[in-house]
């Protein structure tokens, strides 16, 4: 399969969004809204749930399913308010000693007047810094698109996993093609150059795991994720805070 085919699959309509993962992996999810500054960014879904009977904080970028919902959720393009909403939940997780599970699915942080006015760059930068020393385990799972800094702002984690057909890239293949060849239609070539597939990124040590998609059998995907979460959360919980934070620093220091 060519890289561009994965790009199309990652963006395909009908692909499971963060909400489905939250529903199928966790129990008693209670949603929490707002950044306590400006607004409630609906491109981010966040709250507390139970995994194997233990509380966890769950944060997901949600693209929405129906057209109406997709518009409401800004197609999963997050404003600074959304990154601050996520950080607020992470800080609560730290206070109450819950691990954080993030689901990433975004074409990128939103590019618009209000996003810039409210400090898109500053909001992302703050998340990168704060997540680096958050005292509880963080696991980030790329379920669809992982667009640049807007994805990284939820992926400074102890473990980063990608679904088989998810992508993660510094720039969209369209953007890359138009800069490189002044021709946005050369997306196939650009997709290859960017090494944005889960397999490529595993080879580059950017991620720890590729989660198989079982040819679209979502139930099996949820089972596989549960299994991996169980193992890795208990591994991370077995580490002291210092060990975990030192390993997290090293995880990103090596690049």
């Amino acid at each position: 399969m060519e890289a561009y085919d994965r790009v199309c699959m990652a963006r395909a309509k009908g692909r499971a969004t963060s909400m489905s993962y939250i529903k199928n992996l966790f129990d008693s999810f209670v949603e929490m809204h707002g950044d306590r500054r400006v607004s409630d960014d609906k491109a981010i879904v966040s709250g507390i749930a139970k995994f194997d009977g233990k509380p966890v904080t769950v944060i997901g970028i949600e693209k929405g399913v129906t057209t109406k919902e997709r518009v409401e959720r800004n197609f999963g393009s997050v404003h600074p308010d959304g990154y601050r909403k996520a950080l607020r939940q992470m800080k609560l997780a730290e206070k109450f000693l819950r691990p954080v599970i993030c689901f990433v699915d975004t074409a990128g942080a939103y590019c618009g007047i209000e996003a810039e006015e409210r400090g898109q760059g500053q909001a992302i930068a703050e998340n990168l810094m704060e997540m680096m020393t958050l005292k509880v385990p963080i696991i980030s799972i790329f379920i669809g698109e992982g667009g640049s800094g807007g994805a990284l702002a939820l992926a400074v984690a102890d473990r980063v996993w990608m679904l088989e057909n998810a992508i993660y890239s510094v720039i969209s293949p369209e953007g890359c093609a138009s800069i490189l060849w002044k021709d946005a239609t050369k997306v196939r070539e650009a997709s290859e150059c960017l090494k944005l597939t889960a397999d490529d990124l595993l080879k580059l040590n950017i991620i720890e795991k590729v989660i198989p998609e079982f040819s679209g059998n979502q139930d099996k995907v949820y089972e596989a994720l549960k299994e991996n979460l169980r193992t890795e959360l208990s591994l991370l919980k077995g580490m002291t805070e210092e060990e975990m934070l030192a390993a997290r620093y090293e995880r990103f220091r090596k690049f």
Binding site: A125, L128, M129, V156, Y168, I179, F255
Partner: peptide, 26 residues
């Protein structure tokens, strides 16, 4: 911004530098 030609590794520099800034700040 990030140097597109280095792909995902340039994105990782954002996290790497932020980690070092945080240590310095702490």
């Amino acid at each position: 911004g990030a140097r597109m030609q280095e792909g995902i590794l340039s994105l990782m520099q954002m996290a790497k530098t932020s980690a070092a800034v945080k240590k310095h700040s702490d």
